[in-house]
């Protein structure tokens, strides 16, 4: 059995991820992301990678979380986003495609995981790394589900960040915190940060220009052309 603190951490990670993705109140959802990133830092500490924990706290919690919170605060002349996401979820007609995507992603990752770790991976995981890899798969599932079903761009950015964290957990759980893994995760954190900043700035400008907070109205014909 994995140590009790690993089980606790895995549970907390899943709970925070679920909270962050389901919460329609955007400010709370972003705070959820900050809490999730801090828990991720704890997970890296548990795996014995203190520098990675520091990078996660700095890049993930402080900068990415801070950027998204700053987006909600609004700035200067740009109008603020509404505090609560009122957009409806995607239509049921696209559901089969969505589930195909989610299930094929998770199925591929799951098969590969079982192949690599043996059938024992299906029983309660024996070590902290295996447990975190399994948690990573579940978080990827949550993130993918939210990314495909939600329309609000800020919430899709949150879902992207969680999806990325799930991949990092799987990566570290499979290969252990060796130098290559730390390098990959560091690059991944920087990319997630830059992507979040770019997405948040764009969202604010799109909102200011055309009043849009989703992509759905943006057909190639340019129905979103503002005044």
């Amino acid at each position: 059995m994995a140590p009790i603190e690993a089980w606790g951490l895995a549970g907390l990670l899943l709970l925070t991820a679920g909270f962050c993705l389901l919460q329609r109140h955007l400010w709370r959802a972003c705070l959820g992301l900050v809490a999730f990133a801090l828990l991720m830092a704890l997970a890296w500490l548990l795996l014995g990678a203190p520098w990675l924990a520091l990078a996660e706290a700095l890049l993930g919690a402080l900068l990415t979380g801070g950027t998204l919170l700053w987006t909600l605060r609004g700035r200067g002349a740009l109008p603020r986003l509404a505090p609560v996401d009122e957009t409806p979820q995607r239509a049921r007609s696209t559901a089969p495609l969505r589930w195909l995507l989610i299930l094929s992603w998770l199925g591929l990752a799951g098969i590969a995981l079982i192949w690599l770790l043996g059938v024992d991976a299906l029983t309660p995981p024996a070590s902290a790394t295996t447990l975190l890899a399994a948690t990573g798969v579940l978080i990827m599932g949550l993130g993918l589900w939210a990314f495909t079903i939600q329309r609000h761009l800020l919430r899709r950015l949150l879902a992207f960040n969680l999806l990325g964290s799930g991949v990092f957990l799987l990566l570290a759980g499979l290969a252990g915190p060796v130098a290559e893994v730390r390098g990959l995760i560091l690059v991944g954190l920087v990319v997630a940060l830059l992507g979040s900043i770019l997405g948040a700035v764009l969202l604010l400008r799109l909102h200011a220009q055309a009043g849009q907070i989703t992509l759905s109205g943006a057909s190639p014909a340019g129905s979103g052309s503002g005044p």
């Binding site: 990566l171 849009q212 052309s225």
Partner: peptide, 24 residues
């Protein structure tokens, strides 16, 4: 422009998900 912003955001989301698939 609004068209450029929303086309760019779509491209950004696609590119970010593509890079996670690659990382996996």
């Amino acid at each position: 422009s609004a068209e450029a912003l929303s086309a760019g955001l779509r491209y950004l989301l696609f590119a970010l998900v593509g890079s996670l698939t690659w990382l996996l």
